[in-house]
Computed example of a mutant assay.
Amino acid sequence: MPTMQDVAKHAGVALSTVSYAINGTRPISEETRQRIFAAMEELGYRPNVLARGLASKRSRIVALLLPAAKRGLGLTELEFVMSATEVAREHGYHLVLWSTEIRDPRELQQLMQQGLVDGVIVMEIHEQDERIDLLRKIDFPFTMIGRSADNQGINHVDIDFGQTMQVVIDHLASLGHTHIAFLNHAQEEYDAGYGPAVRTQHRFLESIEARGVHGITRFCEAQAEDGYKAVNDLLAIDPNLTAIIVMNDRAIPGILRALADRGWQIPDDFSVVAVVSSARAAEMTNPTITTAEAPAKELGRLGTEMLIKYLEGKKKEFSEVLIPCELVIRESSGPCPKERGQLV
Rank of each mutant, 00 (worst) to 15 (best):
D170T: 02
D261Q: 09
P105G: 04
L54C: 07
Q114V: 08
V168Y: 01
G227N: 03
V275W: 04
A236D: 13
I208P: 02
Q34D: 14
T291G: 03
W98E: 15
T290R: 04
Q163I: 09
I237A: 13
R257C: 07
S29I: 09
I329T: 12
E188I: 12
D6A: 11
A84H: 02
L172G: 04
A251T: 14
E317N: 09
T217W: 06
I154F: 11
T304V: 03
Q201N: 12
G313L: 07
R33P: 05
I145V: 11
G44D: 05
A294S: 14
V96M: 12
I308C: 01
I61A: 10
V81A: 01
P335N: 03
N232D: 07
V18K: 08
V18I: 06
P47I: 01
M4E: 06
A294T: 13
V167L: 13
C220F: 00
V321Y: 12
F270Q: 03
G74Q: 07
T17Q: 09
L183F: 01
V7M: 00
A88E: 00
Q114A: 12
G74F: 02
G44A: 03
K316F: 15
M284K: 12
D233F: 00
R340A: 00
L256N: 04
L15G: 11
Y20G: 05
L235Y: 08
T164D: 07
L64I: 08
C325P: 00
A294M: 15
I180C: 04
K309Y: 10
L50Q: 14
E189W: 12
T304K: 07
R301A: 09
E209W: 00
T304L: 01
H156Y: 13
M112Q: 10
A258H: 01
A243P: 07
D118H: 02
Q201Y: 11
G44M: 04
S319V: 06
S83V: 03
F204I: 03
E41A: 15
E130T: 11
T304S: 04
L327I: 10
R71K: 12
Q163R: 14
I145Q: 07
R52I: 06
D139S: 14
R26V: 07
G303N: 00
Q113F: 09
K315W: 09
K316N: 13
M165T: 12
H202E: 15
E101Y: 09
G254F: 05
Q201W: 12
M144F: 05
E209N: 14
R211C: 13
P324D: 04
C325H: 05
T285D: 08
L97D: 07
M247T: 06
L343E: 00
V13T: 02
L183K: 02
A181I: 01
S319H: 13
P239H: 02
G115P: 01
R340I: 10
G176M: 05
G53H: 09
V157T: 13
T25Y: 02
D118Q: 08
A251P: 01
F140N: 05
T17S: 15
P2Q: 06
H91N: 14
P47G: 01
G313D: 01
S16G: 11
D233Y: 00
F80T: 06
R250N: 13
S16M: 15
G334F: 06
Y310I: 10
Q342V: 07
T3P: 02
D249T: 10
S16K: 14
R280D: 15
D191E: 14
R89A: 15
L205F: 11
K309N: 15
L64K: 05
I121E: 00
G119K: 06
R257G: 08
R26C: 04
V231C: 03
G341E: 09
Q113Y: 12
